[in-house]
Write a protein that binds this DNA or RNA. Structure first.
Length: 412
RNA sequence: GCGGGUGUAGCCAAGUGGUUAAGGCCCCGGGUUGUGGUUCCGGUAUUCGUGGGUUCAAUUCCCAUCACUCGCCCCA
């Protein structure tokens, strides 16, 4: 019986690893170039971290976590990485580093869900977190960074939605307003929404249930939703963000019903979606979480960040050029071939040769099929005279020259 | 957790209740003992996801199971 990879997981094989490398390299270059530093946290954390950090009212914590107990310690495979990054920020005393502190990460996340298009049980995210700035300039910076990254990947037709869900104070008032507005018809809402009514009424606003949608479509509720319920500070913050986005020429729409699924968000929330994905159309989600550091035991630190789903990016990204070999050594002298291949490799020229010592014609055929730029021919004549023949496989031009001159033709 | 679809080689795929399960790509060998990508010839499935049942006979019909996939829910 062959053992297969667990449901909802994928191997990244030689056929597509270059696509992942492409995405990861772009991320690393762009983020480091913007003075973000990479943070690598454990793939599992104390279960408690996610209960406190992500929130008990969320589906992620309630039904999607891989949790196991080892020696009486409850541990959980990370379902997202903001909680872990914040934990690391606190534990390593990063608040002492020059502020603002900007972090980025990439890696696998785990959620126990029914696999579907754009949804795996082990999936990969790349994300950024910016600590220490409470002004909207920080929100603008991370959103711009997200747009830049998506642009680097040549992903077309994306839309950005933003909203401000207020700070804990004004959100409480808003919750009460929603509860009051919804209360008369509460019996008619779906079972999930009835739970949300108690735990987190904001989540009722983006319920996908048709009946709930209709129930929300009352004048009173519309007025409540569209009212400027957030406090003056939050309102100013939102206005400033919009100004920055305008200056940066970033197109956005305001979606008053956009509330994110994680409890830690405050003020700004945003989402980037693609029309070219199926039901799972969000490629990037994020927002501000000014209370999280404190909630996890650090001192009050404003922060903002986002995460992107790499599998979803890959689904809508034009396929990049595969990595290929630059040179292929063709020779029936395996000793000399091996030596020459490593000489080329040491100069940064990607090189391979035939370890099976096949016929000369077959080796040349191989060089051609690998789409190499050059075949480096090292036959008896060349070996005897200390030369080498470099053949350009595109133009068929070839030159016989001394081995020292080889790098005049083949450049890194 | 609920509902629909699919399952034949590494990949794409035809097929039928009955002797050796088409074809294409890839790969390998040869035509060509040192000059390729074209072309020509040849080779690669004790077996049709897995288990059971019906039948003289099952890849084909039935049941179960698993995997993949799409939608709901949720999210990146």
């Amino acid at each position: 019986m062959i053992i297969k990879a667990p449901k909802g997981t994928d191997d990244i094989t030689a056929q597509d690893s270059y696509i992942w490398q492409f995405m990861e390299n772009k991320a690393q270059n762009l983020f480091e170039n913007s003075n973000y530093k990479e943070v690598r946290t454990p793939i599992f954390e104390s279960t408690e971290l996610f209960h406190r950090g992500v929130g008990d009212s969320t589906d992620i914590v309630n039904k999607e976590m891989y949790t196991f107990v080892q020696k009486e310690r409850s541990l959980t495979l990370r379902p997202e990485n903001t909680a872990g990054a914040v934990r690391a920020y606190i534990e390593n005393g990063m608040h002492r580093l020059p502020s603002p502190l900007k972090l980025w990460y990439k890696g696998p996340m785990f959620r126990y869900e029914r696999p579907q298009g754009g949804r795996k049980r082990q999936f990969h995210q790349v994300g950024v977190e910016l600590f220490g700035i409470q002004e909207a300039i920080a929100d603008a910076e991370v959103i711009k960074l997200a747009m830049e990254y998506l642009d680097e990947l040549n992903i077309p037709e994306l839309s950005l939605e933003i909203n401000n869900i207020g700070c804990p104070e004004c959100r409480n008032d808003f919750r009460d307003k929603i509860r009051n507005a919804v209360q008369p018809g509460l019996e008619m809402f779906c079972a999930d929404c009835k739970v949300r009514y108690d735990k987190n009424p904001l989540r009722m606003l983006d319920c996908k249930n048709d009946t709930c949608k209709e129930l929300l479509d009352t004048d009173e509720l519309k007025e409540t939703i569209n009212s400027d319920y957030i406090c003056e500070e939050c309102s100013t913050h939102f206005d400033n963000l919009k100004k920055y986005l305008n200056i940066l020429n970033i197109k956005y729409t305001i979606n008053k019903k956009l509330v994110r699924g994680l409890d830690y968000y405050t003020k700004t929330v945003f989402e980037i979606t693609s029309n070219n994905l199926g039901a799972q159309n969000a490629v990037c989600g994020g927002g501000r979480y000014d209370g999280l550091v404190e909630m996890l035991g650090g001192k009050h630190t404003p922060a903002v960040g986002w995460a992107m789903g790499m599998e979803r990016l890959m689904a809508i990204m034009p396929t990049p050029e595969p990595n290929k070999i630059k040179a292929f050594v063709v020779s029936n002298n395996t000793y000399k071939a091996l030596e020459l291949a490593f000489k080329l490799r040491s100069k940064g020229i990607s090189t391979d040769f035939d370890l099976l010592n096949r016929k000369f014609v077959k080796q040349l055929d191989k060089a051609s099929k690998l789409n190499a730029d050059y075949a480096v021919l090292l036959g008896e004549d060349e070996i005897n005279s200390g030369t080498v023949t470099v053949k350009n496989l595109k133009t068929s031009e070839q030159h016989t020259l001394s081995q020292d001159k080889i790098f005049d033709i083949i450049e890194y």
